[in-house]
Design a protein around this nucleic acid. Structure first.
Lengths: 200, 200
DNA sequence: ACGTTTCGATACACCGGTGTATCCGATACA
DNA sequence: TGTATCGGATACACCGGTGTATCGAAACGT
């Protein structure tokens, strides 16, 4: 399944052949067919696995932020400047692990989800769960700073997630060695920009 | 080329066969090969064409907003409430034409762009141009209201474009008859939410 | 009105991927 | 220790898509 994840991410679901996947895992096609019926089945299984992993990472972070934020706020008396926000967000992003392959896979899934109603429903549920989880992080953050968001925090999570993914996408296209780092930089820039806009 | 655009959008670049494209256009594969060398070449040609069309629509809108906004502002004395913003954005969105197929095509292109450095450069240039164009619309809007954005308007355009596309994506997945309408609704909701956040 | 050229159709050879049927060996189990 | 089961390998038949070569006809220029 790890091999399949890589292959799917690298070349896409259609360009990926059963042969490629089997070969990457040092198996033959025969081995594949004795474990899965179709490529699509495996792909969907991977989608679910990936989503669970990602959700677990987010859950870890929500536990984390409950610890980190209050101690940080102890120093600055309940208010947080944009400057201080940077490192927090950065450390949060670090926890989410390697994203390049995952994002490619996710993009592939997205496309499938837009074309297939069943997959679409599944994808929206997954995204909803992720946004919800992320939303509770944001909620906790707002809470800790003593603000109440004007926008539903799940919706806010959605918007932030989208802009993060857009940044990641741009970084991937630009290429180079440190994709993840440039993505984070790009995202931080836009996030702080938005907050600046928000404050003006 | 129209046929190819449809087929590419509906099933994706890899699943699309030369046969399908030719058939959709009531031609044979022979006709295809006497006009293009490969499927990919046609795809990229379509990407360029689509981008030009979209850019033209945006340019139309920027001319439009310079007319519409000042007259509207005459009434409300240079300030615009979120309530009044709605119809303006809505009418702007209407001008951008049918988006479902275009977005599917674009998503396909995006994926290709993330995997192929050359296409990636091309895509980023296109996106940059679109963001720039859209940015000048936003700039004009800010100008008209007498505000100066805290964030570079091109960056802001980028973020807004991303959240619009995310809304469109969600609407497509939800399916139903009025995809475009629900996408706009979803987008407006998030946009106004953001502005509310901005104002609080 | 006559070459020429261009566009599309037809036919063919080729290849890569699929899925299935059969076989082998190792492991589990009685 | 013998047998059943299961994971994987091998081999085969099949199909859909590709690209090219050849041909006809219609459009074009002179």
């Amino acid at each position: 399944m790890d091999a399949a994840f890589e292959v799917f991410s690298e070349v896409g679901i259609h360009a990926a052949s059963v042969e490629m996947i089997a070969e990457r895992a040092d198996f033959t096609r025969g081995a594949f067919y004795s474990n899965f019926d179709t490529k699509e089945e495996l792909f969907l299984a991977l989608a679910e696995r990936g989503n669970n992993e990602r959700l677990a990472l987010l859950r870890g972070s929500v536990a984390n932020i409950d610890v980190i934020l209050p101690t940080l706020l102890g120093n600055s008396g309940g208010k947080l400047t944009a400057q201080e926000l940077g490192p927090i967000v950065a450390s949060f992003l670090e926890q989410q692990g390697e994203n390049r392959l995952w994002f490619l896979f996710q993009s592939e899934l997205r496309l499938l989800a837009m074309r297939d109603g069943e997959v679409g429903k599944l994808y929206l549920e997954q995204k909803r769960a992720a946004d919800h989880e992320f939303g509770s992080i944001i909620s906790a953050a707002f809470d800790a700073v003593g603000l109440t968001p004007a926008l539903d925090s799940v919706e806010l999570a959605n918007v932030l997630m989208n802009t993060y993914e857009a940044a990641l996408q741009e970084a991937i296209m630009r290429g180079g060695e440190h994709v993840q780092e440039s993505a984070h930089q790009l995202f931080m820039q836009r996030l702080l920009g938005l907050i600046g806009q928000l404050a003006s």
